[in-house]
Each structure stands twice: as structure tokens, then as C-alpha cells.
């Protein structure tokens, strides 16, 4: 059994008095795509914030390539090769499309992704490279956000609700592009409310309920009943 690329060990997270995660245990192997599903408020986004360093935790609760990173700042985590595609896309409004991508690539990590490679993946962005990022449609903005994360050539990429607020046809095309993105040995965690989309692209799935892991299994083996039990907590 090879060493996992990322493991969460009894991860706890709180916002003031509100505890969002209770002792979450999770492991992600190299090249694996993990889906995290769960209802609103289950702690999915908090988990990604903890991994990416936007929330500070005890160092040993997040271990990446054998190194405790829970207490690192987000920019230090990014430098280690973890990229986040944040919920709601969160492009920089005063930067153009191209500048948004370039700033994603400012860490200069080696790898297959470059401005040209992103433009090849999403040709529409090349046409609109000089546009203000705010002038793009939601689907185009999501592509910029994904491209921006790829530009750093991460070893681990985190997707937070990438289908939120997008039309079904656009969600479909983005999910069609995903295997091409994570196929090169990159590991990924996909947080998604759309369970079938999440299962279709992932190797394994974790379900969170009220801050705890309520289900874990192989995406293709898992039954709908097990998921709805884990998702809603009903028998």
C-alpha cells in the first residue's frame, strides 16, 4: 500500500463557537479522484478550506506527502502544489482573463500546464483573453477558475461546487473536460452536491453529514440507498 498523497487525521474545524468538522479521517492516494458529497452545511467547503490553508488547523491534522501542513498559510500550501477552484469561481475582477490565468501560474511549478495548454483545453478563453473577467458568462468564468488553478501545475487540485449556478449543458461540458485534466496522475478532490455527477468522475466517495464522515466507498460499488442514508441520515 503506497503512502497516501493526502491524509486527514482527526480533522477538527470550528468557526467561533460553531464546530464544523468532528474528527474527520480521510486518505487520498496519488492519482486518485475523490468525491465529497453531503447536504448544505455538512462541512464540505470547510474541509477544502482546511486542506488549502484558508483555515488554520493543528499541523498534524492535515498531512501532505508525509508532511504536516495543517498550520501552514494558504500561500505556503499553494507553493507545495495544492490548488483550489473556489466555490463561486472568485475571479479577480480587476484582472483580465489572461491575467487571471497568469497569476495562477506565478508559482512557476514545472508541469504540463501553461497558458497555451489552458487555451487549448478551453479555446473560448483564448478568444476572450483580453476581456475583463467580469464580462464573461458564468460557464466561461468557471473555465477561467479551473484554468487558473491548473496554471500552477498542482499535484492535488480541489474543486468546490464547480457546477453551482451553471446551466446543465455547461455543467456537462465542464465535467466532460475533467478526465482530461486529472488524467495525468494529478490527484483531485471534488466537492459536489450533484451526486451522480460526482460519482461519474470519481474513484472513491466520502459522504459528510453534520461534520462527520457518514459513508465511504468505491464510487462504482456504492448503492443509491446507502448514499441517501448517509446523505440525509434517514433509515
Amino acid at each position: 500500500m503506497p503512502e497516501p498523497i493526502l491524509s486527514l487525521r482527526k480533522l477538527e474545524a470550528r468557526y467561533g463557537d460553531f464546530q464544523a468538522l468532528y474528527g474527520v479521517e480521510m486518505a487520498l492516494n496519488e492519482g486518485e479522484v475523490l468525491a465529497i458529497i453531503g447536504a448544505n452545511g455538512a462541512g464540505k467547503t470547510t474541509l477544502l478550506r482546511s486542506v488549502s490553508g484558508l483555515m488554520s488547523n493543528a499541523a498534524a491534522q492535515v498531512v501532505y506527502h508525509g508532511q504536516p501542513i495543517g498550520a501552514l498559510r494558504a500561500d505556503e500550501v499553494a507553493a507545495l502544489g495544492i490548488a483550489l477552484v473556489p466555490e463561486g469561481r472568485q475571479l479577480f475582477p480587476s484582472l483580465s482573463v489572461e491575467e487571471n490565468l497568469l497569476i495562477g501560474g506565478r508559482l512557476n511549478r514545472k508541469g504540463p500546464w501553461s497558458l497555451d495548454a489552458v487555451f487549448e483545453l478551453f479555446p473560448v478563453l483564448k478568444e476572450r483573453r483580453a476581456f475583463a473577467s467580469t464580462a464573461l458568462s458564468g460557464g466561461q468564468q468557471q473555465r477561467v477558475a479551473i484554468g487558473r488553478a491548473l496554471m500552477s501545475n498542482p499535484d492535488l487540485i480541489l474543486f468546490d461546487e464547480i457546477s453551482l449556478g451553471l446551466a446543465p449543458v455547461i455543467i456537462k461540458s465542464i465535467y466532460e473536460a475533467l478526465p482530461g485534466i486529472v488524467g495525468d496522475g494529478m490527484s483531485a478532490i471534488i466537492v459536489e452536491q450533484d451526486v451522480s455527477k460526482a460519482l461519474s468522475v470519481s474513484d472513491r466517495v466520502y459522504c459528510l453529514m453534520e461534520g462527520r464522515v457518514s459513508l465511504e466507498g468505491r464510487s462504482r460499488d456504492i448503492s443509491r440507498e446507502a448514499i441517501s442514508r448517509a446523505y440525509f441520515g434517514v433509515e
Binding site: 490553508g53 479577480f92 484582472l95 497569476i103 495562477g104
Partner: peptide, 11 residues
């Protein structure tokens, strides 16, 4: 624009 997201870019 956004300090938090900028940190994610390694800034």
C-alpha cells in the same frame, strides 16, 4: 480584489 483568493495563488 480578494486577499483570500490571492493567497491561494501563492501570494
Amino acid at each position: 480584489d480578494n486577499q483570500e483568493i490571492a493567497q491561494l495563488m501563492g501570494l
